[in-house]
Amino acid sequence: MSKRKAGNEHLEHDESEEISKSEIKRQMHALQELGKKLSELRPDQLAKVSMSDHMRRAVEESRRISSHIALKRHMQYLGKLLRTEDNEAIQIAVDMFDASTQAHNQRFHALENWRERLITGDNNTIQLFIDAYAGCDIQHLRQLIRNAQREREQQKPPAHARKLFRYLRELDELEDGTQES
């Protein structure tokens, strides 16, 4: 055995102690799965995820691929590109849009709590909300609250309460988008 070959075996031996092939495969599959989740996001959601332009174009390209095998290869490519991106930040952003994640559920419950407090509360509660969400249309918010309160008093189905929740969710998404910038 030559010195060069013996030296390479020594380097390979050191690397295999650090990370096993199985672990590398698991990491690559996780990156491919993250790429798949990215490609499933709506365009407005994808715009809120910070990534390079090259990565964004590759994700958008995946929407145009219809062949199963080609899509599988493209997911492998996305996984390869994700190696150079900030995976943790991308994963956090994707999790915020994934309805099955805890972060999304907490956010949803916080908005439901705000809706309930606004409908049953007073002007102080409204002012607290306005302070928390500076970009809201105060007149529109007050109108939605009045309609939801009237609806409750008349024991009608909660159509206006739903509209109020949708508005709160839009505000929350706008606030989240401005904080990331």
Rank of each mutant, 00 (worst) to 15 (best):
R4G: 09
N8G: 09
E12T: 11
E12Y: 11
H13F: 11
H13K: 15
H13S: 15
E15D: 13
S16G: 09
E17P: 01
E18S: 11
E18K: 14
I19K: 09
K21E: 07
I24M: 10
I24L: 14
I24S: 10
R26G: 00
H29A: 14
L34N: 04
G35W: 01
G35C: 02
G35N: 01
G35I: 01
K36Q: 14
L41V: 03
P43K: 04
Q45F: 06
Q45W: 02
L46N: 03
L46R: 01
A47R: 13
A47N: 11
V49N: 04
M51P: 02
D53C: 05
H54T: 14
M55K: 02
M55H: 05
V59Q: 00
E60P: 05
E60W: 02
E61T: 14
E61M: 12
S62L: 06
R63G: 10
R64Y: 08
R64V: 06
R64E: 11
S67R: 08
L71Y: 09
K72F: 10
R73P: 06
R73E: 05
H74A: 04
H74C: 02
L81P: 07
L82Y: 03
R83Y: 02
R83V: 06
T84V: 11
D86R: 13
N87T: 15
A89S: 15
I90G: 08
A93L: 07
D95H: 01
F97I: 07
F97P: 03
Q102R: 13
Q106M: 11
F108Y: 08
F108L: 10
H109Q: 14
H109Y: 11
H109N: 13
L111M: 10
L111Y: 01
R117M: 08
R117C: 00
L118I: 05
G121Y: 02
D122G: 11
T125I: 10
I126S: 05
L128K: 09
L128P: 00
F129D: 00
I130Q: 01
D131E: 09
G135N: 07
D137P: 01
I138W: 00
I138V: 12
H140W: 00
L141W: 03
L144T: 04
I145D: 00
I145L: 04
R146Y: 06
N147H: 12
A148Y: 02
A148H: 04
A148S: 14
